[in-house]
Amino acid sequence: MINLKINGFEVQVEQGATILQAAEKIGIKIPTFCYDDRFKPHGSCRICVVEVEGARSLMTACCIPASDGMVVQTESEAVVEARKEILDLILANHPLDCLTCEQAGRCTLQDLCYQYDMEETSYDGKRKSYEKDVSNEFYTADQTKCILCGKCVYMCSQVQNTDALCFVDRGFETHIGTPFEQGIAESTCVSCGNCVSVCPVGALMPKRREKYRYWEVDKVQTTCSYCGVGCQMELLVKDNKIMEVLPVKGHCNEGLLCVKGRFSFDFVSHPDRLKKPLIRKNGELQEATWDEAYDVIVNKIKEVKDHDGPDAVAAFSSARGLTEDNYLMTKMMRAVIGTNNVDHCARL
């Protein structure tokens, strides 16, 4: 075990743990843009720099392993000065359109500029200009907002393993693109949106169905309703409607989702949803009350049971329903109707 001191607090961590992980352990937050515990650390954004006693320069907390006896300051004057300089340089090439930017409220750059009182850049130089890539059905890529932290590239290559995104060009011209610059729609992208979820600024944004701000939504954690992986996710809700779905680091999904879980939620509020019971009358399905529908069903069950016995009633339960729904369906069939004729599409 390694013993070190951060901001005056003693902390003990396993061999190999980074300064960032040690700080996290005692609740000290060190800001990051490019760090994600699912990637190999690459220390490219430098915003996580900290002062280590005896070190010649500031060190990146996300890459440097904690060592025995280390004494670390995470918000010293030198650290704050360095972070402000980094933000100043990022802002030199980042539009200040927070009033209309859809990432506002979920933007790490906005949060850090607020934290370190950075209103604007002190540099006046060339600004990058790119056309927004809107070719994907579910998200847009705006390189003018990109801070080149590389999270999207590493997410795509190390975690999602689709290898659709990469760094293109060098120096000032560096930007995120797809192989041969053919646009996202022509790449190997599978629209999982995992790059969008980790983008710390507004460069990768979901295409919104309607307007909402991140501070306006309620978040509800639930389990995805598509395949059997059981990914955990958050539904972002405004005015009784799902606006967006974000991944949660659940036991089995490690914070990943696929295109269906992330983007295919429109069915919930679709106008074609059934809103009232329907009963077939004169060959047509017509709207009815619950009482009327229940009467028809209950009378039919009684009639079939009396005439042909309970085994003349059968049911298909649902692999998409709740466990609780399935339990009461099987109980209704077995305990109340009196038959074991209940199955579901496990075979289909």
Partner: peptide
């Protein structure tokens, strides 16, 4: 729909997980 009710789903590894109501 799933987003309109409380309950559980059980995933492929037999893990029982919560489903939570988010909308009416």
């Amino acid at each position: 729909a799933y987003a309109e009710k409380d309950g559980t789903f059980v995933n492929t590894e037999r893990r029982v997980q919560r489903v939570r109501k988010a909308v009416d």
